[in-house]
């Protein structure tokens, strides 16, 4: 059967040939264009909301297939997930030297892990401590996003309730569109995150450190004990963080390790959002016994305070008691003296 509405190739050609007066308002580069949901069969119910992007890949402001964007995302996650980060400058460290430094670090951490396991500690983070070279400028940008972009509400906050009778689905789907400009997005690659981070008036404390070739050593937990082990390998300083002895650890004194360590400079640290210089980092590493040690110190201090406080509070009543008692004794004596006179 021929089509009811006849195609007129003649008219089509004319339209293509004539330049369209209205500018192109929307173009989709990707193949997965947003499609409107088909109207639902039951007219009393609203159409079920659909998610227009994969749930783990919300639309990104910068092209997501580029390495830079992915690095930016990775650095954001590193910054958010590691409360303790050591910053190093590496001056032309060779690949062999990197390899040997990482090996020494791994052996020292494994040793510490074994020791802690023997003492009955649960949190062994030795194998999660990583030493990686970073792309300085992308890291700086990721740091700005992490420090200054603090979305108040989650994307899932304005979701319809799963038992809402008005929709046909119980799936919770964020009411966001497919464009990265949507204000509802809260992820670090969204347009709003980019806008907040590119505000040059906001100054991060770590900013002056972020130039030149950098490497970061990330810890998943603030643990002075691990920090001490790491510092004594990577940036030894004799009294508190001595390098391992030549007899105990001969591989540490191989020329590759030593020449690599000469070229690494500890610049500072970021501990739970605060920035420390070299001295401060050593101070954090020098806390005896880690968090347990600190707790013990605090308990000790509070006990001392409690003793002093009760002493001070008792003092007033004691002195009052003594005065009153003294007065009573005085009066009694007087009364005794008065009696024989009668």
């Amino acid at each position: 059967m021929p089509p009811r509405i006849r195609l007129r190739p003649h008219a089509l050609r004319l339209r293509i040939a004539a330049p369209s007066s209205s500018p192109l308002c929307a173009t989709y580069a990707s193949l997965a264009t947003a499609t409107t949901p088909a109207p639902s069969i039951d007219p009393t119910r609203a159409a079920a909301p659909i998610l227009r992007y994969p749930p783990t890949q919300p639309p990104s402001h910068k092209p997501p297939e580029v390495r830079k964007t992915q690095l930016h995302r990775t650095y954001q996650s590193v910054l958010k997930s590691s409360p303790l980060i050591l910053l190093f400058q590496h001056n032309n460290v060779k690949a062999v030297e990197w390899m040997s430094i990482r090996r020494e670090l791994a052996t020292a951490l494994r040793k510490l892990d074994a020791e802690r396991a023997k003492n009955g500690h649960e949190d062994l983070i030795g194998d999660q401590i990583k030493f990686q070279v970073i792309t300085t400028n992308i890291f700086a940008s990721a740091l700005r996003v992490v420090e200054f972009f603090k979305p108040e509400e989650n994307t899932m906050d304005r979701v319809q309730h799963s038992t809402d009778p008005r929709t046909a689905t119980s799936a919770q789907i964020p009411q966001t569109s497919n464009s990265p400009e949507d204000e509802a997005f809260k992820h670090g690659l969204s347009k709003r995150a980019w806008e907040v981070a590119s505000n040059r008036k906001l100054k991060s404390e770590l900013e002056p450190l972020l130039s030149g070739p950098l490497a970061i050593l990330t810890f998943p937990d603030v643990s002075p004990q691990y920090l001490k082990a790491v510092l004594s390998i990577v940036a030894p300083s004799p009294p508190n963080f001595p390098a391992p002895k030549r007899k105990a650890n001969p591989s540490y004194f191989e020329p590759e390790v030593q020449s690599g360590l000469q070229k690494l400079m500890l610049l500072g640290a970021r501990v739970e959002g605060k920035v420390f210089d070299t001295e401060g980092t050593r101070w954090v590493g020098g806390i005896d016994g880690g968090i347990d040690g600190l707790r013990a110190q605090l308990v000790h201090m509070l006990q001392g305070v409690g003793g002093a406080l009760t002493g001070a509070l008792e003092g007033a009543s004691k002195s009052l008691y003594f005065t009153v008692e003294g007065r009573r004794m005085d009066m009694e004596e007087k009364a005794k003296d008065d009696k024989p006179a009668e």
């Binding site: 400058q89 001056n91 002056p208 450190l209 030149g212 500072g268």
Partner: peptide, 17 residues
């Protein structure tokens, strides 16, 4: 290292082969 004027010093170190 926390001064922004330390940049040339740090870059000089990174130029040493």
């Amino acid at each position: 290292p926390f001064s922004p004027r330390a940049k040339p010093a740090r870059l000089f170190l990174s130029l040493i082969p």
